[in-house]
Design a protein around this nucleic acid. Structure first.
Length: 876
RNA sequence: GGGCGUGUAGCUCAGCGGUAGAGCGCCGCCCUUACAAGGCGGAUGUCGGCGGUUCGAAACCGUCCACGCCCA
């Protein structure tokens, strides 16, 4: 790794020329390429530094960078850049997942344009075609991550379909199979009739749709029962009607058979405790092959399951409805029933919750089918326990509840997909009904009648292995030994159930009970500037690349970081990005000022005795901020740390320290030399503190200031423990007097630049050493001959007398003073009231009482001062 | 239906038991030699409603109202 020492050619005899405005677009790309070339982001498994490992929840190979990625990556990049500066061997692992359904969809659409389907190509050629697509147009996000500045170890980039990761998949499948945690079973699954595959429960989105609720009379006369349904087409597959066992209305019918309309079939009436007697008529139709609840009722009562649709959700039952799509069939069947006089009631629209495919939004068709499953109970138990017993921490902690609710109530996970793109299930079937699961080092059985399962595995089956498969598992690699477990997983709370739970289950299982990460840091969703969800259809989605082009990557990153409160959604608007750009520009110009005035980082800091109170104040504050920022980082409080740095840099360093130092630099001499070193220190440390969040502008400025190689490999600042409360109090007085007099000047309508003769009486106050600076900041001239004070402002024990040449706006001044007097009197009344309350005096802690006493005496002093000033004003 | 969460300045949000804050926006003055992507000054809130606990409540408890999210 490169040594971060002074470059020989970077003497400070000549000040580097910086333009007056910062143009990010000119430098960002070049800086990033330099960082990568120099290998700053690579991680060495042989290093003796302590490891810090983060995996990116692998983005989808079909995707491109959106604000959600930009947000998450900003947080991860900030964490890892700081750790790298702190001397950790830092690995941020990049890569993508193969996104089975999404990718297959993309390539099938391409084929469709050529008038072909995947079946025209055949499986092998199709998969070949997908690889070709991936090579040409997949993985755009990798390039876009460079734009953002992500410090990832590119040489380690992985893809879930890589050879090594596929080995990992086969290995864990075999182990789980041998442990009887993977099994094959026929159940009702979520079927997408467009994607033509099963999907898992969490890939189904429920939304309220307008449907119809139709009440149908089954049977005849006294033995008829009315059932209500939103899915009339499934009645063709009904094999029972169910009622609650305690329901008096139907007790006499339980055990009898009634006729199922349109079919001529007779079906039993069964009693099942799961039927809600309060809902509708209290009787439900039972279609075991097309509804998960009905399937269970069917199991309990040994009912046949009659499938009435094919994989496209087209009716397969012979008769007038054969070949109709499920929606067409619904209308046709309702019409036929109506013609028979069997429709008792119709409610339309009937709003109810309907499942949709999260990939294509097609309505899910529950379907009875043979699939592969993971038995999650023992795995989920372990995943829950790891958090319960504190081996894994969730930030913010409130999110633990959601995690437990989820892992403690997990259903078995359907992992087989009827796709061609993905990891093919390593199970072979033999001619005599043999089933053989094949491990990665084994030869699959061959010969007459043997064939491999045609399904592939859920993409999450492979991305769940990501925290260790990327490190070479199942091989016992150096990287695995060095970098597992990961330090932290940073991801959105919406992903808790997707990747997080799976990574936890697989990590604990595969790595002998070692969880995949110590900490799960959850962030919110990016929203627009009004807090609305971003969506293409709503038209408020933003392409982060546009904002990066316009304002720079740093501006986007800083805006996102400033909004990042743990687990809370972050709104973002262009105005705010602009504000962040302005901050970067301010930083730029402040550093320019420092360079123009000879700020230096050479040599040790002067001893405190040699420094002015101003120097000691800013160093005291600087160290306080270092400590604050560290605490916020350790608690994943990105908004807080960004805000602390923003305010320290702008409100304290730029607005006050830099302004105060101007007087020092003008005067020259020893004090100026000391301040040059202090200013250099303050800017240097501030840039290093900001670097993890805004890497580009800080790199440019820091290298210009220090002449060193790169801030990426600079040391993270440490709190030197230097504090100077006296200096802080002294500068607070300076700020107070300057602000007071500025306010007076503004009220009096004086132009900011207008020089005013003044007499300052500062003797005996903390302000005495600061007369020059105060005069400079307030544009006060020395009192010349014929000085005549027309306004006298007592503040902080000092007196500032101004000669406004006899003209002062008495009305404006009286108005202001009256307002201040009112505030002071209210303060006096409030505090007097509290101090007159014996219960308060008896029960409130002493520091609080002391504080109230201090406020009272301040208020009284203010009242005396202001009253005197008002008395001294000429009559209007 | 079950669970979680949120209502604080025009907007977006911090604060979570001891003087109501920030960013952006707004008003006024200013191109003061680092910066107009800037400087200085200013205005703005019965902290959703009602009860309670407390010496003291934006904060804690109860309740109501209004939103939002997740799960079924």
């Amino acid at each position: 790794m490169t040594d971060n020492t002074q470059r020989p050619d970077s003497g400070h005899d000549s000040t580097p020329e910086l333009p007056t405005q910062y143009t990010p677009a000119e430098v960002e790309g070049e800086l990033y390429e330099r960082w990568v070339e120099r290998g700053y982001f690579e991680a060495d498994a042989k290093s003796d530094k302590p490891p810090y490992t983060v995996v990116i929840p692998p983005p989808n190979v079909t995707g491109s960078l959106h604000l959600g990625h930009a947000f998450e990556h900003t947080l991860i990049d900030a964490l890892t850049r700081r750790k790298r500066m702190q001397g950790f061997e830092t690995l941020w692992q990049p890569g993508m997942d193969h996104a089975g359904i999404a990718t297959q969809n993309v390539v099938e659409r391409e084929l469709a344009k050529e008038g072909k389907s995947r079946h025209d190509l055949g499986r092998e050629a199709f998969v070949e075609r997908v690889w070709q697509w991936k090579g040409e147009s997949g993985g755009q996000i990798s390039g876009q991550m460079r734009r953002l500045g992500d410090g990832v170890a590119w040489s380690r980039e992985r893809f879930t379909m890589d050879e090594g990761l596929s080995q990992a998949v086969q290995t864990i499948f075999k182990r789980l199979y041998d442990d009887e945690l993977i099994y094959r079973a026929e159940r009702i699954i979520n079927w997408c009739p467009r994607c033509l595959t099963a999907i898992s429960d969490i890939e189904v989105n429920y939304q309220d749709d307008d449907g119809e609720l139709v009440s149908i009379r089954y049977g005849e006369g006294d033995s008829s029962i009315v059932v209500a349904t939103t899915r009339a087409e499934t009645m063709l597959g009904d094999t029972a009607v169910a009622v609650h066992p305690d329901d008096e209305r139907y007790r006499h019918l339980v055990g009898t058979e009634i006729e199922l309309p349109l079919t001529g079939r007779r079906i039993p009436v069964v009693a099942d405790a799961h039927v809600d007697p309060e809902f509708g008529t209290g009787a439900v139709k039972v279609t075991p092959a097309h509804d998960p609840n009905d399937f269970e009722i069917g199991q309990r009562h040994d009912l046949p399951a009659i499938a009435v649709m094919d994989e496209h959700a087209v009716i397969t039952v012979h008769g007038p409805f054969l070949g109709l799509d499920r929606m067409e069939a619904r209308s046709a069947i309702v019409a036929a029933l109506r013609a028979e006089g069997r429709i008792v009631a119709e409610k339309r629209p009937y709003v109810h919750s309907v499942g949709h495919c999260s990939r294509c939004n097609t309505t899910i068709e529950p379907r009875l089918s043979m699939q592969w499953w993971v038995k999650v109970a023992p795995l989920a138990k372990a995943a829950g326990d790891a958090v319960r017993d504190g081996r894994v921490a969730i930030h913010p902690q409130e999110m633990e509840k959601r995690y437990f609710d989820w892992v403690d109530n997990l259903h078995d996970w359907c992992i087989s997909r009827q796709l061609w793109w993905g990891h093919r299930i390593p199970v072979w079937y033999g001619p005599a009904g043999e089933v053989v699961c094949v491990g990665p080092d084994e030869q699959p059985p061959s010969g007459e009648g043997w064939h491999q399962d045609t399904d592939v595995l859920d993409t999450w089956f492979s991305s769940g292995l990501w925290p260790f498969s990327t490190l070479g598992w199942p091989e016992q690699t150096e990287s695995l030994a060095k970098f597992y477990p990961n330090s932290v997983l940073v991801t959105g709370y919406d992903i808790l159930f997707f990747w997080v739970a799976r990574m936890m289950m697989f990590g604990l299982y595969a790595m002998d009970g070692t969880p995949p990460f110590h900490t799960i840091a959850l962030h919110g969703m990016v929203r627009d500037q009004f807090g609305k969800k971003m969506s293409k259809s709503f038209g408020n989605a933003v392409n982060p690349l546009d904002w990066m082009d316009k304002y720079g990557s740093d501006a986007l990153r800083f805006t996102l970081a400033r909004g990042a409160n743990p687990g809370v959604d972050v709104p973002i608007g262009e105005d705010w990005v602009q504000g962040s750009r302005n901050f970067a520009n301010k930083l730029w110009n402040a550093t320019r000022f420092a360079l123009m005035n000879g700020a230096t980082v050479q040599g040790p800091l002067p001893a405190p005795e040699r420094m002015s109170a101003t120097d000691r104040w800013i160093l005291s504050r600087l160290n306080t901020v270092v400590a604050e920022v560290d605490a916020y980082y350790d608690d994943y409080q990105f908004a807080k740390l960004s805000d602390a740095l923003f305010h320290f840099a702008w409100d304290e360093v730029f607005d006050w320290y830099v302004e105060l130092s101007k007087t020092t630099f003008q005067a020259g001499g020893e004090a100026a030399e000391v301040s040059k070193r202090v200013l250099g220190e303050v800017v240097d440390v501030t840039l290093r503190l900001l670097h993890p969040v805004i890497p580009f502008v800080t790199e440019t400025l820091w290298t210009a200031l220090t002449g060193r190689e790169s801030v990426v490999i600079a040391e993270w600042p440490q709190d030197s423990a230097f504090r100077d409360a006296a200096a802080e109090a002294e500068i607070a007085e300076v700020q107070r007097v300057v602000t007071e007099v500025r306010r007076f000047r503004s009220d009096q309508g004086l132009q900011p630049g207008q020089r005013v003769p003044a007499r300052l009486t500062l003797a005996g106050t903390l302000l005495a050493p600061h007369e020059d600076a105060i005069r400079q900041l307030l544009r006060l001239q020395p009192e010349g001959e014929g000085f005549h004070a027309t306004a006298t402002l007592p503040v902080a024990g000092a007196i500032v007398a101004l000669d406004l040449s006899g003209t002062i706006d008495v009305a404006a001044e009286r108005k202001r003073l009256t307002k201040d007097l009112g505030l002071a009197e209210k303060e006096k009344a409030d505090t007097t009231g509290k101090l007159g309350n014996e219960a308060f005096l008896a029960k409130a802690p002493e520091p609080v009482v002391a504080k109230i006493r201090a406020r009272l005496s301040t208020a009284e002093a203010d009242i005396a001062r202001i009253t005197a000033q008002l008395g001294a004003l000429p009559e209007a």
